[in-house]
Design a protein around this nucleic acid. Structure first.
Length: 564
RNA sequence: GGCGCAGUAGCUCAGCUGGAUAGAGCAACGGUCUUCUAAACCGUAGGUCGAGAGUUCGAACCUCUCCUGCGUCACCA
């Protein structure tokens, strides 16, 4: 079944092949409102050759087109509008969705090629804030989207688990810390020590030297420093995992910055050997003026490595391990220059796979117009936001559906779903100021709205009491009220493609909202559970809607409770 | 100052490759629960699509100039 093809062929015949198939395909559009039709052909470009007004051309063209395959073909203004045969299209669409089930929209285009996704990457000993949420949920959703298209995503949590701050932390722990405190609240107290250290260091600059000294010890493999580092890291990771569990997200790798400690020297040597390294102001750089970029600083004047040194090692390591088709970095837009540099250096090193490295940037979350900063106390803790969302969901359930069984689980699904959906529904690159009330809203264009729509559909199916196999009945749904729903359902595979091409989960989120809205409208205007000859078709529609909503929510990493 | 991203209704945002009267949600006002979950549905009101010029049969979308906001511009990550 390819209705678009039918439209194009009919037009071609009507035009006596004046335009090619490809030209018509290019011109063909979908009207904004389905009241105008399902496909539209604008006649403007024919005005010159036909020497007539577009309106007249449209009228004449309609008479030349064989419209028997369609409900109707009409001229409206300068457009030739095609109306599809609704029952036939509905039957084909619903049959496909019911038959394919959760595989609807699947593709094997990825051929199991690997796609490592660099995502989340919180810093050890610091709490996860709303700022970390974006990378985490966008990365997770992209993993699911690409998996559906036959790729093999590898979710990598590039933990911030190395750097001078660990030296400082060790000093702070020795001076003011206690094992008992840390055990009680690992991240909270580690952060407290860290902040305290910075306050004290302002008065006593020698503290910084002590911190550097301890970091040097750590780098040299000092047993005590190593032990403390491992302890802090383990505790932090355990805390992070609690949050990831709440979000329903897991990782394939926790290879953080420390993992690359012994992998940078070979990279530097390679750069040296390829003659790319230059000395400038005492530092080692790779010149990128040819690409219009500032130089990549590989080694500081004191010999220490830098961010990009580690990222080069990581990129090369990932390529050797995975031979990726694409390597995604879900990292804030403020690091765009860094990734341009990274790619440029890799290219100069002769790695043609550098082009497969893709930075997937996202906009900044601010609070009161200012950047979130743990040290300055301008933070929004992710845990607290999730708590708030879940308790609001609980209250909502108590008020609206007190009989609901397993209310705690549903409250969790709805609350967390609201937070995730809120972060994914808009264009990645949109920056926004954090607004708790907005994040935990359950009405309107929100995750819970979509979840609720699915729950309603499920409720109908429970009550339907329809014995037998829907697929053995005619699904030729004729109800014009359901038409928008059917068209959205049919569009789902394209939507996944668009989301993947743009690395944009919001495409899925917006689709889910449109489908849910169309279904709710249908629901409000039509009685579904009526025993007539169209019952099976309507139940087929409800089943398909629920299936596709669940798939869409699944691709976003949002749960789909059956009741709420 | 260079580069990048953005500027659409009071607020938050859609608008697929330029196309038919610019769409949602929130907030406001008014309707709809004895009938499939009202976390819903319907209606009213609300817009010089930052400004100006250009290209085009046609521009929120493409080009140029300007204005405004954010990010970034080597020894943090």
């Amino acid at each position: 079944m390819n209705v678009k093809e039918n439209v194009i062929i009919s037009l071609q015949q009507g035009l006596d092949a004046e335009l090619t198939y490809a030209q018509i395909e290019q011109l063909l559009e979908v009207p904004k409102s389905s009241a105008l039709g399902d496909y539209a052909f604008p006649t403007f470009i024919l005005a010159k050759t036909w020497h007539r007004a577009p309106q007249q051309i449209a009228q004449e063209l309609v008479t030349k087109i064989d419209g028997t395959a369609f409900e109707k073909v009409v001229a409206t203004g300068a457009y030739v509008n095609f109306f599809l045969n609704k029952p036939a299209f509905a039957a084909a669409t619903l049959t496909t969705i019911l038959a394919e089930g959760t595989a609807y929209g699947d593709s094997d285009q990825g051929q199991q090629a690997n796609i490592p996704i660099d995502m989340s990457s919180p810093n050890i000993a610091k709490p996860m804030s709303m700022g970390h949420l974006r990378s985490t949920v966008i990365g997770n959703s992209l993993a699911k989207i690409y998996h559906k298209l036959g790729y093999q995503p590898i979710k990598i949590n590039y933990l911030g688990d190395w750097g001078t701050q660990f030296g400082k932390l060790i000093v702070a722990y020795h001076k003011w810390g206690s094992e008992a405190e840390i055990k009680a609240d690992p991240i909270g107290n580690l952060l407290k020590y860290y902040v305290h250290f910075h306050e004290e260091a302002l008065k006593d600059p020698e503290l910084d030297d002590e911190g550097r000294a301890w970091f040097k010890k750590l780098e040299d493999g000092d047993p005590e420093a190593t032990h403390l580092w491992e302890w802090f890291r383990g505790l932090s990771l355990a805390e992070f995992k609690k949050i990831y569990d709440r979000l329903g997200i897991d990782f394939d790798s926790f290879n953080g910055e420390a993992y690359y400690n012994d992998k940078m020297d070979p990279v530097v040597a390679d750069l040296q050997q390829k003659g790319l390294l230059q000395e400038s102001q005492g530092a080692q750089i790779v010149d990128l003026t040819a690409e219009g970029l500032t130089p990549a600083l590989i080694k500081r004047s004191d010999g220490a490595t830098l961010y990009i040194t580690r990222d080069l090692a990581a990129a090369i390591d990932r390529y050797q391990k995975y031979h990726f088709a694409k390597s995604l970095y879900v990292v804030g837009a403020e690091q765009t220059e860094h990734f341009k540099q990274l790619k440029a250096v890799l290219k100069q090193m002769g790695y043609d796979w550098a082009d497969q490295i893709i930075h997937v940037p996202f906009g900044l979350i601010t609070k009161d117009g200012k950047k979130l900063s743990t040290r300055k106390g301008n933070v929004v803790l992710l845990d607290q936001v999730l708590d708030e969302a879940v308790s609001l969901a609980q209250a909502q359930i108590a008020a609206k559906n007190p009989e609901l069984h397993d209310a705690a689980t549903v409250a969790h699904q709805v609350g967390v779903g609201a937070v995730i959906f809120h972060d994914l529904k808009n264009d990645r690159l949109d920056s926004f100021d954090f607004n708790l009330a907005e994040v935990v809203r359950f009405e309107g264009e929100t995750g819970p709205y979509v979840q609720y729509t699915n729950a309603r559909a499920q409720s109908i199916l429970r009550k339907a009491d329809f014995s037998g196999d829907l697929s053995t009945h005619s699904l030729a749904l004729a109800d014009p009220q359901a038409w928008d729903v059917v068209k959205y359902l049919a569009d789902f595979p394209n939507v996944i493609q668009r989301a993947a091409q743009g690395f944009e989960p919001s495409v899925i989120a917006k689709y889910a909202l449109r489908l849910a809205k169309a279904f709710n409208k249908y629901y409000a205007n039509s009685k579904i559970l009526v025993d007539d000859e169209q019952l099976a078709a309507r139940l087929g529609l409800v089943t398909a809607v629920s299936q596709v909503l669940q798939l869409a929510l699944g691709l976003l990493g949002v749960a789909a409770p059956e009741e709420m």
